[in-house]
Nucleic acid binder design. Structure first.
Lengths: 340, 340
DNA sequence: CTGAAAGCGCTTACAG
DNA sequence: CTGAAAGCGCTTACAG
């Protein structure tokens, strides 16, 4: 293996100077830089990251923490994030956690064990960030939730405007003629920091503004972000409230389960029950019927998140909190209710 | 941060002995071991992996290479593999590659750059392994393809018996009454080492044994492992051969695209065209109609692959090549052809 | 069974 | 602008 020593010998400079060239230290003569870079090129030299990290007392890996299994939406972002990071030459570690696990606690643990140089959270519960994030001292980015209100010094966040999107979904269903609308997904709305809470807030606003009654008891059912969760919750919801004509599943994965449940109850989508999802995963464009949904801009989320992290990793750059645009896709799964 | 030095001081032994305890070296007195382990416990000491790896000249990360994007089947395995590895305290890096990329070349690159201590390949082209794998000297496991015939000294493999499963799929369709069967997916069958080739082999055997004509020109269409690939290929296939009454998509993701394409051509599944997939992803149980498919045992694949790797990483353990059982799931997407 | 010591490949004050 | 040297935290012959 070629080491910095070889490069030093070959270039005629000391390893100190070679190290400076590698790390873009400005205190190197143009001449030395040229020569050393040429040798590095020619030898195809890669600095040993273990040695580097040992000195710098940190690991080279950026860790991506994904909340929830079988979450196709997050997996789409994950793939993008990983690809961009890889192209930037960064090492990427990935951890999948249960959607109810404490991701900040987990990150904290990793910090003492492996000292990653940064984190990207795919999904996150603000409550956990409020409690424990202060002890994390590496740059972090939260995707699909906003941490603006927390004012943490090393946490950026990028998200869809969930409140607005939730509002538009309900408005859309109301305009289609629905009055008895069910909502599925997320934990009980009291838990103010889970994904889905802001979506729910937007929904409530839309109900109020349109004077449509909404009763959490009869029109809401919590669900995990999974097909099975959606399946079971939908059955419970429609059993306890048979008047419902439209269902808003706050994740496409949930919506898939919902559509299957409706079908298994002998009803049809959208003729008997309309369904609208959230996320805009690829599958929403292929299922039968095509799913109405809120399409989140996976690409922008991934790109902005990574750019932000890289910037803050390498320079002193302020944290950012930004909404990325979304799009309500009409699909084929929403129709006017039967009676209208 | 507590280091091995602190533990040495606190326990009254030298750092050498502490290191031996950490690494389960048998040449340590019971007394020393007890005392040192107690101090490690009490201080919650984690050895610095960078220092360790620097000495041992390898990185601590096990790298998982996933071939193909939006491959829900691989993502299911990935999540399992990652979780098991994490519970074993291993660091896990992940790389998603295009399904046609050269994964061995990529692994080779990583070997010089980061020196991972092992690889798990999710999907792999045997051709690439044949060409370049010899230069990889860390333990590797290939999942969903068999490398038995390659006789590589550090490559185990676990897979479904694709040939047999392919055989059973065609047999099943024939028993259902189909004579004009289309196959979608994989590269041209000449490329003998891609996923899908062995599935195809099984299909051909079944056709022959049952004296059903099969013509690659008119009954086959290649496709990427993606919904869009499946969608487009199915349209091409059914246009060039309208007599087809059943389609075998060699991946569920492809099958999803196929079902959508059939629908968009004004036909119904399974009334007009039967569809059967491969993989048994979760979604196959939720789509409408439920997808007939070959259910691969994700869990066994993940578990056996990881166990094998860990064993070979920590002890001298021989490579293994094993088939895991599969199951043909009938679903709702296959029916007798119209004319029968 | 144990300790002292060399060394893994790098970075970074320090001195010049 | 450059080099010599210390040191990051660990492992592992070596000697005893």
């Amino acid at each position: 293996m070629t080491t910095i020593k070889d490069i030093a010998k070959l270039s005629g400079y000391s390893i100190g100077t070679v190290s400076r060239v590698i790390n873009h230290n400005p205190d190197v003569s143009e001449e030395a830089r040229m020569k050393i870079e040429q040798v590095i090129q020619q030898e195809n030299f890669q600095p040993n990251s273990n040695a580097k990290q040992l000195k710098q007392q940190s690991s080279s890996a950026i860790t991506i923490i994904v909340k929830g299994y079988e979450n196709m939406f997050f997996e789409g972002i994950l793939e993008r994030v990983q690809a961009i990071l890889r192209d930037s030459g960064e090492e990427v570690a990935v951890a999948f956690l249960d959607e109810y696990a404490n991701e900040v606690q987990y990150a904290l643990q990793l910090c003492t064990a492996k000292k990653p140089k940064g984190f990207i959270f795919l999904g996150g519960n603000l409550e956990f960030f409020k409690q424990d994030f202060a002890r994390i001292d590496v740059p972090c980015v939260l995707l699909t939730n906003t941490a603006e209100s927390l004012h943490l010094p090393n946490l950026s966040s990028y998200t869809t405007d969930d409140r607005l999107a939730g509002y538009q979904v309900i408005e859309y269903l109301i305009k289609a003629g629905h009055r008895e609308i069910g909502i599925i997904g997320g934990s009980a709305s009291k838990v103010g920091s889970q994904v889905g809470f802001r979506r729910m807030q937007g929904c409530l606003e839309a109900f109020q503004e349109n004077h449509i009654p909404y009763n959490e008891e009869t029109n809401y059912e919590p669900s995990r972000f999974s097909m099975q969760g959606g399946y079971e919750s939908t059955q419970r919801l429609l059993k306890k409230n048979p008047k419902i004509t439209a269902v808003f599943a706050i994740g496409d994965t949930i919506a898939i389960g919902a559509m299957r449940a409706i079908r298994d109850m002998g009803l049809r989508v959208p003729e008997d029950i309309s369904v609208i999802g959230y996320d805009g995963i690829e599958y929403s464009r292929y299922c039968v019927p095509r799913l109405a949904t809120v399409h989140q801009d996976t690409d922008a989320l991934a790109r902005k998140g990574v750019e932000d992290l890289l910037l803050r990793l390498n320079y002193s750059h302020p944290v950012t909190h930004e909404d990325v645009p979304f799009q309500l896709v009409e699909g084929e799964s929403v129709a006017a209710p039967r009676d209208h």
